[in-house]
Computed example of a mutant assay.
Amino acid sequence: MLSRGEAVLLDVREPDEWKGGHFARAKLVPYTSQLEKGVVPDDVKQVTKRIFIHCKAGGRASKSCDVLKNQFGLDAVSIPEGFDKLRELGFDDVVV
């Protein structure tokens, strides 16, 4: 879905984690410093596609999914596997 442009990938880790490596197609929207505080970028609020959310280990992705679904009615799905596991599973478009 991502490669066909039918979905969006959000990385909800913090900027220092992002700088250590991230997926090229992901958009950074940190949970702790933004979403948890109710700060959601307008371009995310207006997404009409499915939103896949990942973090380091799954916890922040799950919480972020709840925020986006419950507060904004977005079609959000938490990816329980963290960043490292996703890389092991074949997500290889990593920017370091």
Rank of each mutant, 00 (worst) to 15 (best):
I79N: 08
F83D: 00
I79G: 05
D75C: 02
V12R: 05
E88Q: 14
A61V: 07
V77D: 03
P41A: 04
V39E: 13
A24F: 01
D16F: 13
G5N: 11
V47C: 07
F52T: 10
L35M: 14
K37D: 03
R60L: 09
Q46T: 12
A26Y: 02
D75M: 09
E14P: 10
S78C: 13
S78W: 02
A76F: 04
G58C: 02
G59T: 12
D16S: 14
S33T: 15
A76D: 07
G82S: 01
V8L: 15
G59F: 05
T32N: 13
F23I: 04
R25Q: 10
E36F: 00
A61W: 04
F91D: 00
K27Y: 11
S64V: 10
D42I: 06
G58K: 01
A7P: 11
H22Q: 03
A24L: 11
H22W: 03
P30M: 07
G90Y: 05
A26W: 02
K37P: 04
G90V: 03
D42M: 05
L68R: 12
D92V: 09
A76L: 04
K37V: 02
C55I: 13
V44Y: 08
P15T: 09
E6R: 14
Q34E: 13
E17W: 09
E88W: 01
G59Q: 11
E88C: 01
V40A: 04
P80E: 13
V94A: 04
